Amino acid sequence: MTSTPGPAPLPEPAPPGAAAEATGERNPADRATPDGVPPDRVTPVRPATDRATAHLLDRFLAALRPRLPLRALWAHGSLAGGDYQQGRSDLDLIAIVDRPCTPEEERQLGELHATLDRTDPLAAKLHCSYLAADETADPAHIHLTWAHRELKRRTVTPVTRRELHTFGRVLYGDAPTALLPPVTDAELATFIRTDLREFWRPALDEPEEWLQDIWVDLGMLTLARATVTLRDGTLISKGEALAVLGELGAPDEVIADIRHRRYGPAAPPPPPGPARPSDRLGRRADLTRAFLGPAIDRTLATYGHTFPAPPG
């Protein structure tokens, strides 16, 4: 990175709500894998955006526009799909710019995100990929991305692309249909099967990972949502996926644990000092892995060579 004067101070935020018409949830440990789960073909009802989240989105957009040749800013994931939980869900965003970012612009973006992170507790969950307008066609292309408090490069997957076409929320500029090529059902189904077979199934061989909440939550919810999409081409929310997990035979104890942490009362902060895996976490990990292996195999065997049937 070049050493040049820093970016201008963050502008004063606009009134809450100006950007409330705003990506998913990231994969565990940001491994090289899909960053979402299957989307629905039916546009959900637009959820109301809480004032704290709207304030952050307003502030981000106001700071972004002077720094980049911005053509559009979109939201996908939980906020766009109606399952957003303040402080628990990620804020998954896609920015379309006229051209690739320069090294200096990349540096300024890093400082912008770091400043937001220091001054707004919700900003730690704000993720944004920056796509040049002439680089949107290839789902395998890697794009500059801020995620998990650092700049990196990763793809915008077919899942995210379908999600944007189906219920993406426009914060600024053109709609996704104007700038982003659509994803076919065959492309989406192929991607989902590959995700299950090449990422989630091998990940079960790493037992230590499954002591973490994020692995349990995303592994279980991804399976349920992927199964429904491969079966009939529709999307369900994470909340709806909990019911599907029951139908698939998932352990009640694990389903209840996910429901409580994602939708129940906020948990107290952990005690100070080094964290040690508890017996409860070890049992939960064992139950999760014992269920997911055969369940993934059944889904792949059932829907391994078919495309989802049209809804209705």
Rank of each mutant, 00 (worst) to 15 (best):
23 T>P: 00
117 D>R: 15
105 E>D: 09
72 A>W: 03
40 D>I: 06
187 E>R: 13
156 V>H: 06
216 V>A: 01
51 R>Y: 00
262 R>C: 09
163 E>N: 14
25 E>N: 09
135 E>L: 12
7 P>H: 10
251 P>H: 10
194 T>D: 15
40 D>G: 15
142 I>Q: 12
62 A>E: 13
109 L>F: 09
146 W>S: 03
299 T>H: 02
312 G>I: 01
98 D>H: 11
119 T>H: 15
232 D>F: 01
217 D>M: 08
213 D>C: 00
5 P>G: 07
158 P>D: 09
283 R>P: 00
17 G>S: 06
98 D>C: 08
176 P>H: 09
277 P>D: 04
213 D>A: 08
272 P>L: 09
264 G>E: 11
116 L>Q: 04
269 P>H: 02
33 T>R: 14
189 A>R: 06
301 A>D: 15
81 G>L: 02
66 P>C: 14
59 R>P: 01
226 A>L: 10
111 E>K: 09
312 G>P: 04
269 P>A: 11
262 R>I: 00
113 H>W: 13
97 V>F: 02
32 A>C: 02
202 P>H: 09
20 A>L: 01
3 S>I: 14
72 A>T: 10
29 A>E: 09
299 T>K: 02
217 D>F: 13
77 G>Y: 01
157 T>H: 14
132 A>Y: 04
7 P>C: 11
53 T>W: 03
120 D>K: 00
146 W>I: 00
271 P>V: 05
206 E>T: 14
290 A>P: 01
244 V>E: 15
